[in-house]
Computed example of a mutant assay.
Amino acid sequence: MQDLQQVYASQKKLIFFLLAFCALGWGLTPFKTVFAGLALGSLFGLYNFWLLVRRLEKFDRSLSEGKKVASLGTGLRFASGIAAVAVAIAIPEQFHLTSSVIGLMIPYVYLLADRIIYHVKHH
């Protein structure tokens, strides 16, 4: 199975391509708020995924050393999601709320698709 850092690196590449696509969409279409919201949500989603990777590695180290296992930081990831939505609500003329929420989920959807493809290829 791929290392968590490899999965995260792959995730970053996809998000950067998505951000480039959002920049093109923002600049070339009349749907500026939709593409800005998608970019905002994707950035916060990538941050959430980075937090999850960091916490899972810490969790793994704690288990292998026999130490007490700490939280996986769910509260911080929820707070980050709330912050993305708060920005979209606070500045609705710049960010589309629904596309921001969709952007938050993109890293997790990509992770699910990546894992399915990985298992289909290797099993």
Results as ranks from 00 to 15, higher is better:
Met1Val: 08
Leu4Val: 05
Gln6Met: 13
Tyr8Phe: 15
Ala9Thr: 13
Lys13Leu: 05
Lys13Asp: 01
Leu14Asp: 04
Leu14Trp: 13
Leu14Cys: 06
Leu14Gln: 12
Phe16Cys: 10
Phe16Trp: 15
Phe16Asn: 11
Leu18Cys: 01
Leu19Glu: 07
Leu19His: 05
Ala20Pro: 07
Ala20Phe: 15
Phe21Cys: 11
Ala23Glu: 01
Ala23Tyr: 08
Leu24Lys: 01
Gly25Thr: 00
Gly25Val: 02
Gly25Tyr: 00
Gly25Pro: 01
Gly25Gln: 01
Gly27Ile: 11
Gly27His: 12
Thr29Ile: 02
Phe31Trp: 15
Phe31Leu: 15
Thr33Trp: 07
Val34Glu: 14
Phe35Gly: 05
Gly37Phe: 05
Gly41Trp: 08
Ser42Asp: 04
Leu43Thr: 08
Phe44Lys: 01
Phe44Ser: 02
Phe44Glu: 02
Gly45Gln: 06
Leu46Glu: 10
Leu46Ala: 10
Tyr47Arg: 10
Phe49Ile: 04
Phe49Asn: 06
Leu51Cys: 10
Leu51His: 09
Leu51Asp: 07
Leu52Phe: 07
Val53Phe: 04
Val53Trp: 01
Arg54Asp: 07
Arg54Ala: 09
Arg55Lys: 13
Leu56Arg: 10
Leu56Gly: 01
Leu56Glu: 07
Lys58Pro: 01
Ser62Ile: 00
Ser62Lys: 13
Ser62Trp: 03
Leu63Ser: 11
Ser64Gln: 14
Glu65Ser: 13
Lys67Ala: 06
Lys67Asp: 11
Lys68Met: 08
Lys68Pro: 03
Val69Arg: 15
Ala70Leu: 13
Ala70Tyr: 12
Ala70Asp: 14
Ser71Tyr: 04
Ser71Glu: 05
Leu72Ala: 06
Leu72Gly: 06
Leu72Ile: 14
Gly73Glu: 11
Thr74Ile: 15
Leu76Ala: 14
Leu76Thr: 14
Ala79Ser: 14
Ala79Tyr: 09
Ile82Gln: 01
Ala84Asp: 01
Val85Gln: 06
Val85Trp: 07
Val87Trp: 00
Val87Thr: 02
Ala90Met: 10
Ile91Ala: 12
Ile91Lys: 13
Pro92Val: 06
Pro92Ala: 03
Glu93Pro: 00
Phe95Ser: 08
Phe95Lys: 09
Thr98Pro: 00
Thr98Gln: 09
Thr98Asp: 03
Val101Ser: 05
Val101His: 02
Ile102Glu: 07
Ile102Phe: 14
Leu104Ser: 02
Leu104Thr: 05
Ile106Trp: 05
Ile106Gly: 00
Ile106Lys: 02
Pro107Trp: 11
Val109Glu: 02
Val109Gly: 05
Leu111Trp: 11
Leu112Thr: 12
Leu112Cys: 09
Ala113Trp: 12
Ala113Thr: 13
Arg115Val: 10
Arg115Ile: 08
Arg115His: 12
Ile116Lys: 03
Ile117Thr: 10
Ile117Pro: 00
Ile117Lys: 14
Tyr118Met: 08
His119Ser: 08
His119Ile: 01
Val120Gly: 01
Lys121Gln: 11
His122Asp: 05
